[in-house]
Design a protein around this nucleic acid. Structure first.
Lengths: 345, 345
DNA sequence: TTGTATGCGTTATCAA
DNA sequence: TTGATAACGCATACAA
């Protein structure tokens, strides 16, 4: 009837096996597992020995039932960008590595009227321990409130600080873009085009603000004619770039609010017979692998998305006793590559 | 004491609430949830009405404990390619949408000696209902066996059929490459270079076999000088391309075993002052978004990875009663874009 | 066709 | 500092 090591013989050993063999109660074993402070050192050592000996691993499903919370960290997003998603996943995974947590991915449709209900259904079903809300839906306060109502921890990622210290992780897009555009100005560019991101979200707004601040600091005015906008996709970058290049007096440099659009603009320029960077300098934003795989390699702003995701997840799963990492702002930096030179004349 | 709708007042309603209100036993409610056939239509309707009325949602954690299996489908991979991963996730998610399953992502390190133990630990912890094994670790029989031992359903994705009908989903890379290379031959190319993928895996081997078959069918011999190899990364494509271009008698066309390497080869060619496609035609494999974002747009083989992942997940979560989709082979096709023309002379 | 008793493996309550 | 016993919410065996 009994299995190896005196366990119950079916499947993996349970807390009962440990308790029986260690000759203590289940609750005591439970206390050892949960690192309860009120336990004699002797008992703890003894029980830990038995646990190691019979290879006991606590059953997460049972714990989940009792605790009303699963050992899952979920990334909720409405962002289809592959590089972005994988970097976020990488960051979260590195934070929960060696823990008992698993990463669940839950995309939602930003345009769906049932988005909040969809997320509610997800939270009710899987009962994740915590969720990382990715931009841009991280900006949605209804969703944050929903998490709170469900007693689900959450951290909101954004280009600005979207919540309290323990619930937010941010980059400083405005400052990063200011530096990038100043870099163009320092090289002699004065007619600088801007390819904006989609309206209504924080990151495009911040990036535009950074652009305007840099121009203003240099005493340059922002010519609305030199501002065109896209949707963060490659195709939209092509048409936005097209529009700027077709101008009677086109820009000598362009800052695009993300790499995909920057690369779209590069294609548009090349179709027009323009050489990059000789005829047109371009700076992007994100530092996706893509940006170093194009010709010429794209000068861009490194967006610390992996670190942000790591920090977000580490805030979620910080052990009860320990203070979570207090940081919430992570630095961006300009990556100089080959798509910027001084203007021709 | 009682909450709204006569529920127990704390938290969401449970099976007990439904049973009490419907004046049936828990087991009957359980039968309704699990669509048991032995139930009178009348009782079923009645109970379903109560369920709807009080908004009862079965607790997955409790079911997981009782069933010894969580409502999770996991994607286990050791593939760092972002486009690939996101497409796979997209396919799986579309298959489990509207079900109670969630998608968990578990990367592993192919080079780690503890890879099997790592996966075992994951399976023991999260107890996923089923796992999709992505290439190339899907080729590892130890891992498949491990899943079986744990009573965990699995489907192996590959460039060839790796398991029985219900445990495999495949593309036919060999045939797809044969068509692509034949396409080059039909346009007049005879000196055709091959950039292979990394040794030791099935997909590079199959793709090479397709290359050889096409050449043989046209009466052309494979010149080993024109075969160079990479690791499926952009950088390796650059150097592999470089090597072919530096040849005294370089190829007029190149087939690269994936898009990233193809684009790397494009960059290498451009650095050499070669025009694409005029001086060098290139065909890739995968049809990543990338391939249409480069200039000129890359002619490539569409690898039906989204559909494969969808099919894999649908096999895993097929309801007990229903027959799962019997298909396992999904077609690839050549996507003609702008990187191929006839050789100069 | 329906119900009763019991099990799943853990945590919480409260007493010792 | 420890333990007995009751949740947690659902499924299964076995009756009825």
């Amino acid at each position: 009837m009994n299995g190896p090591n005196g366990t119950n013989g079916r499947g993996s050993p349970t807390i009962n096996d440990v308790a029986r063999i260690a000759e203590v109660s289940k609750k005591t074993v439970s206390r050892v597992i949960n690192k309860s402070p009120l336990l004699s050192e002797k008992t703890r050592k003894h029980v830990e020995g038995v646990i190691r000996e019979i290879g006991y691993v606590p059953n997460l499903q049972a714990r989940a039932l009792a605790l009303r919370r699963n050992f899952i960290v979920a990334a909720i997003h409405d962002n289809p960008n592959a590089q972005f998603l994988v970097k976020v996943q990488q960051g979260i995974l590195s934070a929960i590595k060696d823990s008992e947590f698993g990463l669940m991915v839950q995309p939602v449709d930003r345009h769906s009227p049932t988005i909040v209900d969809d997320i509610r259904a997800f939270l009710e079903r899987q009962r994740p321990y915590g969720v990382v809300l990715l931009p841009p839906i991280s900006e949605n306060d209804d969703i944050a409130r929903l998490c709170e109502e469900h007693g689900c921890r959450f951290v909101r990622m954004g280009s600005v600080k979207l919540d309290s210290d323990d619930r937010a992780v941010a980059s400083n897009d405005r400052e990063a873009v200011r530096k990038a555009v100043t870099y163009l100005i320092d090289r002699g560019h004065t007619r600088i085009g801007l390819i904006e991101g989609p309206q209504g979200f924080t990151s495009p707004r911040e990036r535009r603000a950074g652009f305007e601040e840099a121009m203003a600091a240099a005493g340059l005015s922002v010519d609305e004619e030199l501002v065109s906008s896209g949707t963060y996709t490659f195709e939209s970058g092509v048409s936005a770039g097209q529009q700027l290049i077709d101008l009677p007096n086109p820009p000598t440099a362009i800052f695009a609010s993300n790499d995909e659009m920057a690369i779209g603009a590069m294609i548009a320029a090349r179709r027009h017979g323009l050489l990059i960077p000789e005829d047109l300098s371009i700076i992007g934003f994100d530092d996706t692998p893509l940006s170093s795989h194009v010709w010429p390699a794209l000068t861009t702003v490194h967006w610390p998305i992996v670190d942000m995701a790591h920090l977000a997840a580490s805030k979620l799963v910080a052990p009860a006793g320990e203070e979570p990492d207090p940081r919430w702002l992570l630095p961006s930096e300009l990556i100089e590559r080959a798509s910027v030179v001084a203007p021709k004349s």
